[in-house]
Amino acid sequence: MALRLVSITASIVLALGFGFGSWAPAAAGNKGAAIAGGIIAGAAIGAAVSSSINQPKTVYVPVPVAAPPPPQWQQVFSPIPHMNCYPAQRACYNANGAYNANWTYKIYAR
């Protein structure tokens, strides 16, 4: 409520400011139009200030940090589909299967 009052006051001040600012150089016939224009412009700016005050604060979401690489012992790669090779052990395994001497030799011992 206090913020709304401030914004309304600001819009009136602005309106008067615009009105007097344009009143001095204006001809007598244009005085009313200048005041009306000032009120409209001031109201618009006041509304903008009011709406910006009521906006929720910006929430800064931390940038997701890339997951650290797995420990060396858990690192694994697949030279072909369905083959897991473990650099720390220098050994390959069939996916869903046993130690694979063929690929252990091809990858690490040849």
Partner: peptide, 8 residues
């Protein structure tokens, strides 16, 4: 899972 029989 595409795991294997390795006793990790």
């Amino acid at each position: 899972a595409d795991d294997d029989n390795r006793l990790d």
